[in-house]
Design a protein around this nucleic acid. Structure first.
Lengths: 254, 254
DNA sequence: CGAGTCATTGATGAGGTTCAAGTGGGGTGG
DNA sequence: CCACCCCACTTGAACCTCATCAATGACTCG
């Protein structure tokens, strides 16, 4: 429990390790190391269990598996979903680079499945070792609490979406949210590829695949966006934001 | 940050303090002190900021307020709800004795409002002092992480409910969940009072007040429960659990 | 007693699901 | 290289669940 890791930060490091160190990772401003000093980032680096590659549709973990590690997405995209006794699935989130997977499992076992939407890579963070590090790096603990808290807030926003919004508004929220997250990663906020199927989007938003298809067609006809297969371009982001905020009337699906 | 609180556990304690200490609180097996040793419970006691009484409909905190403390419900019931830009509200949870309020705010500011459903009392837990204690009582930190993780899982279950279930199933889930939580507190699992209005239930479940009223009437007619105002008696808990699990066909609302 | 709040019940229809058919790549095999 | 199939998606039509609107009832408080 209190066995401190006392490796100095200047221990020899292989090129491979350097290439995959937190300090060198383009996501370190968004991910767990955010705001840490270099020395502390190194300590975090040393507990990272390893990187794991996943092919499209490969599963990272499954409901019921015992909890051992959190995972940070290095690149690629994931979906997490819950399954209930009757076999109904609900996608609870889509995760992209720099985001953390597995926080619902800290209570003991995984409560949802995580599946790669495309070829992806994660950093494995053994939680027992992370806990040790919390005692030595208070800034890390504080940031970890912020991340968990933000996850709670994110889910509350989805509850608001599922409980109160019409289809049009839900879909606008979804697009605007993706846009903001890509922008935070330095990508274009108005042109991106949907990494998930229409079915996944529908499941996440509490709608059917047909509804998503109709919404895309309608938004396109209104001139709010362009679609080509999974490539989306937001042509009127302001309008979409207004829709998402509920400041603009919602028309039915026809 | 590292200024340890070094009061011994056997310092003189007033009767008032004893009456409200964690060790003496009937909720200490469910609340934050769960599983702690007596000495550590005392240390936790000493950082509790104070107890605060709230009248029915009084607000504990509000969206946008800066975060300073978590709150543990001593007795009474609360609801938490989010409000978006358009003024739409979504109740994100109902909290009862032994449950923690404010975890969504650790990221900096409160993201929802918390309101007492009846005369209630909370323990204020200044988070800065709790963080100090985390460094000294690892078991407390671990349990805190479990609690936050469980909150994430709870919300994912609500997402499943709002995204996938029909009205009948949602309402059954709601009743079965209340039943289990009262059971865990030593109360009757099959007879309890709804502390929230029909409107609150409807808002939480993504339904209207009329739907809740019809569901209650229908469940009553089916002989699954009795209702008298807010007093509910589950007459066929097994049937309700089957409905909640989705193992039983759902009939429409008529 | 009247005003106000909360809940019940009925009638109607909107919003989105369900069912069904069709389209359009992208891959595979002949 | 084309024919074929498979899958994800699109589009249309009918249906259904639940929201909405409206009227009424029950209880509380001044």
């Amino acid at each position: 429990m209190n066995q401190a890791i006392s490796l100095p930060g200047d221990a020899p490091v292989s090129i491979q390790a350097l290439k995959t160190s937190c300090a060198a990772c383009s996501m370190h401003q968004l991910c767990l190391p955010m705001g840490l000093e270099d020395a502390d980032i190194n300590r975090l680096d040393q507990i990272i269990g390893g990187r794991r590659r996943l092919a499209k549709d490969e599963r990272l973990y499954q409901m019921g598996e015992p909890f051992t590690s959190l995972y940070a997405v290095r690149f690629g995209h994931f979906k997490t979903y819950q399954v209930n006794a009757a076999g109904e699935e609900q996608i609870t989130g889509f995760q992209m680079a720099g985001e953390l997977l597995g926080m619902d499992a800290i209570s003991g076992a995984h409560h949802c499945d995580a599946v790669a939407l495309e070829d992806s890579e994660v950093c494995e963070i053994p939680f027992a070792r992370l806990e040790e590090l919390f005692g030595q790096v208070p800034a890390l603990l504080r940031h970890f609490h912020r991340i968990m808290s933000q996850e709670i807030t994110r889910e509350q926003n989805v509850m608001l979406l599922l409980g109160n919004m019409r289809a049009e508004q839900r879909f606008a929220v979804f697009l605007v949210n993706l846009s903001a997250r890509y922008a935070a990663r330095g990508y274009s906020p108005n042109s991106f590829q949907l990494r998930m199927s229409r079915e996944d989007i529908g499941n996440y938003l509490g709608l059917t695949i047909e509804s998503i298809s109709r919404l895309l067609s309608r938004f396109k006809k209104q001139g709010w966006l362009q679609v080509d297969k999974r490539e989306v371009t937001l042509l009127d982001p302001a309008k979409l934001k207004a829709l998402a905020a509920g400041l603009d009337a919602c028309s039915p699906m026809g």
